[in-house]
Design a protein around this nucleic acid. Structure first.
Lengths: 188, 188
DNA sequence: TGTTAGACTGACTAAACAGTCAGTATTTTG
DNA sequence: CAAAATACTGACTGTTTAGTCAGTCTAACA
């Protein structure tokens, strides 16, 4: 496998289990089966490795979720698809999700361009805007709606991943909590 | 002032702006106006300093919020009070809140006893249990309800603190979002 | 007043770490 | 094939850092 890719993958595992700063670059290189110099050949500094990993995962997540949106036509269906796919992605990729959570609550977040973050968010905001225009949901700042849906996804993920449910039960909880979310934001 | 207290306070500020591991103990001591040895006199290791700070803040937050609960009699009122006070505390204490968020998403969390965490949560779970028994809200796992309310608080805090609203506007948003939350969880 | 205990000091050290670099292997190109 | 560019190596270094320790200061008590 590509050594650069192997480094990112190893770094992910180690970062999730020990945190950014308690994971020495030497250990990442060793575990990935490459020389220390190689790590710095691809990533000039440790910080750039961390930020690269963030960008890669964020993009990866967004693509998977965005793909599911395309298959839907109704507006409520699109928001539901976004909710469901976000949750399913996070359950399928617990390490990736945990890394993103840790990163987003750390001072590293500042090292990422604000526009890089907003690009991923834009399509969801658009979805909310259309639903407001169509009077399907309450008329409020779409960034607040985005904060609400993201954090509900986060909370339900927390709940699902700290219990051991069957696939069927998970699916039910995902659907139930989406209906609750929809009830929360729907107009009237 | 108490040097131990001064150390905790200084550590908080530095941790929030630079992260745990990019804040050397030497800097904490210097900024707090004490010798390095003093820091290790009170906290045997840096990790214990971090965990102590977590425990202190968590307790502090819980007390403030719990106090407001006592003044309320109705059940919906109690849940509303919990929601409002949590948000207000987090807005009044942004550094403290940011530290707790960072800590909770870091591998340090494992170093805190599980029961220490659950003690703070118990009264809220009880509140939900009673509301379910009284058929005021949907009958679902109270820990899921807890995950939902906590994360909604977190999301609304995020929104409020990244915009500059007047006190009045803040209050309105807090109340509106609580009503939405209630609509989400109320039984039929 | 002398004794004792806790608070506090800061120069010091041993270990760990990010990043370098001079050089070797491998692949691409002309 | 030669030459050039790129991928990769790992021993090494300068710096930073958590934590130590031998000893000082303060206050209370007997």
């Amino acid at each position: 496998m590509d050594k650069k890719e192997k480094l990112l993958q190893t770094a992910l595992t180690l970062f999730v289990s020990q945190g950014f700063t308690d994971t020495p670059t030497s250990k990442i290189a060793k575990e990935a089966g490459v020389a220390t110099g190689t790590l710095f050949y691809f990533f000039p500094t440790k910080d750039e490795l961390i930020v690269s990993l963030y960008s890669k995962l964020k993009k990866q997540a967004a693509e998977g979720i965005q793909a599911a949106l395309a298959k839907v036509n109704s507006r409520k269906g699109a928001i539901k698809a976004y909710y469901e796919e976000s949750l399913k992605w996070s359950l399928r990729n617990p390490n990736e999700f945990s890394f993103l959570a840790q990163f987003s609550n750390s001072p590293y977040l500042k090292k990422v361009g604000a526009d890089e973050v907003s690009v991923q968010v834009a399509p969801v905001l658009q979805l909310f805007r259309e639903a407001i225009a169509g009077q399907q949901i309450v008329d409020m700042d779409v960034t607040l709606l985005y904060a609400l849906i993201s954090n509900q996804v986060f909370g339900v993920n927390q709940y699902l991943s700290s219990n051991s449910f069957s696939k069927r039960e998970q699916q039910d909880i995902i659907e139930d909590t989406f209906l609750m979310f929809w009830r929360m934001i729907e107009g009237r």
